[in-house]
Design a protein around this nucleic acid. Structure first.
Length: 125
DNA sequence: TAATTGACCGATC
DNA sequence: AGATCGGCCAATT
């Protein structure tokens, strides 16, 4: 069984380039329900933070969660802009760059398998 | 066991 | 748009 952190990392890794996802959505996809608060710390615990696209995770409404002036924030802004994401007044336009699974059966099947592996449709317990 | 702390969320003013 | 407040969940004191 994958740990909670691992599920979070997998979901974040599934966010396409140039798109962003909110903490709440990541939590829900990872099976945490409303555990949005667990996502940030989990990203900080990621072993290979350079490879994980943590910068594609933003707060509700597209707000950048990292505190102004922090190094992490600057990195996030730079990486997002490098991917073509427009950031205005400290937030991204979710209507334009927001990502949610369910944009096609292919994507859904792929995500399901990524999260739960083959046989995800088999009965639980 | 209880209090505190977060890269949070949503409604409200 | 910005500030406040209550709710949320897990880890740490």
């Amino acid at each position: 069984m994958a740990t909670r952190d691992e599920r979070i990392w997998q979901v974040v890794a599934a966010i396409p380039r140039g798109r962003v996802c909110t903490y709440g959505t990541v939590a829900a996809l990872a099976g945490l329900g409303r555990g949005a608060r667990q996502v940030g710390p989990a990203l900080g615990r990621a072993p290979d933070r350079t490879r994980l696209p943590w910068h594609r995770v933003v707060a509700a409404g597209g707000r950048i969660a990292l505190p102004p002036g922090s190094a992490g924030r600057r990195t996030q802004l730079a990486r997002l802009r490098a991917e073509g994401v427009v950031i205005r007044a400290g937030r991204v336009d979710l209507a334009a760059h927001g990502w949610e699974p369910g944009q096609g059966p292919v994507a859904d099947a792929w995500l399901d398998e990524l999260l739960w592996g083959p046989g995800a449709l088999a009965p639980e317990e």
